[in-house]
Simulated scan of single mutants.
Amino acid sequence: MARWLLAIAYIVAGIAHLTRPAGFVAITPDWVPLPHMVVMLTGMAELAGATGLMIPRLRRAAAVGLALYALCVWPANVHHALRDIPLNGVHLSWWYHGPRLVLQPVIIWWALWAGSVTDWPFRRRQSPP
């Protein structure tokens, strides 16, 4: 169930990156080259990772990829929060930014757990040989 929920979340995010990139481009830090292309590539990475989570032989690689992806986009989330960049003219408060920034490590862990890269802190039952 956790794997499916994460895959669905990344599918939704990937589609949003590809179909409505302006908000993602707006929060991209200035030091990132070619922000529109980077947003398109991140959308494709999200879709590939979500698909990989559902394919057993690709699951672990997809999980590691999604965890690294979540780590790499964290600076954009920090940039968004610290610069108070409006999205569609709306300034989001720290009620939005605070939990988003704090939960990023949870998303990283979730990808690793959903892909069976880690079982911490929930030990999976081993099926008998």
Rank of each mutant, 00 (worst) to 15 (best):
124 R>E: 06
45 A>N: 07
59 R>Y: 03
112 L>Y: 14
122 F>H: 10
36 H>P: 03
114 A>S: 11
57 R>Y: 13
46 E>Y: 03
14 G>V: 05
106 V>H: 04
128 P>A: 09
123 R>T: 12
61 A>D: 04
76 A>I: 13
2 A>F: 15
19 T>G: 02
83 R>S: 11
37 M>P: 00
90 V>L: 14
18 L>Q: 10
81 A>S: 13
31 W>T: 05
80 H>Y: 15
35 P>V: 06
17 H>G: 08
117 V>Y: 06
100 R>P: 03
111 A>L: 08
80 H>G: 11
16 A>L: 11
41 L>M: 05
88 N>G: 14
41 L>E: 00
67 A>E: 13
44 M>R: 02
119 D>V: 13
122 F>L: 14
17 H>C: 07
68 L>M: 14
9 A>V: 11
84 D>I: 12
25 V>D: 01
8 I>N: 01
40 M>R: 10
101 L>T: 02
104 Q>D: 05
89 G>R: 02
4 W>L: 10
104 Q>C: 07
80 H>K: 08
41 L>Y: 02
116 S>H: 12
124 R>Q: 04
58 L>K: 13
123 R>Y: 09
46 E>D: 10
7 A>C: 10
107 I>F: 12
50 A>N: 03
81 A>C: 10
21 P>V: 10
73 V>M: 11
75 P>D: 10
58 L>T: 14
40 M>W: 09
15 I>Y: 01
91 H>R: 14
38 V>W: 13
18 L>V: 12
110 W>N: 09
45 A>K: 03
23 G>P: 01
92 L>W: 03
35 P>I: 06
72 C>F: 02
26 A>L: 07
20 R>G: 03
78 V>G: 02
57 R>E: 14
84 D>Y: 12
128 P>K: 04
92 L>G: 03
50 A>C: 11
35 P>F: 01
97 H>R: 09
121 P>E: 07
18 L>Y: 11
94 W>S: 07
18 L>K: 10
18 L>S: 11
21 P>Y: 08
111 A>T: 07
61 A>P: 04
8 I>W: 05
43 G>C: 09
75 P>N: 04
84 D>K: 15
49 G>H: 02
59 R>K: 08
90 V>C: 07
108 I>L: 08
75 P>Q: 03
41 L>I: 11
126 Q>P: 06
23 G>R: 01
115 G>W: 00
64 V>F: 11
64 V>L: 14
4 W>D: 04
18 L>M: 12
71 L>W: 06
39 V>M: 01
77 N>F: 07
121 P>F: 06
19 T>W: 09
35 P>E: 03
13 A>I: 06
98 G>T: 13
104 Q>M: 11
28 T>G: 07
52 G>K: 00
70 A>T: 11
46 E>M: 09
121 P>R: 01
76 A>N: 07
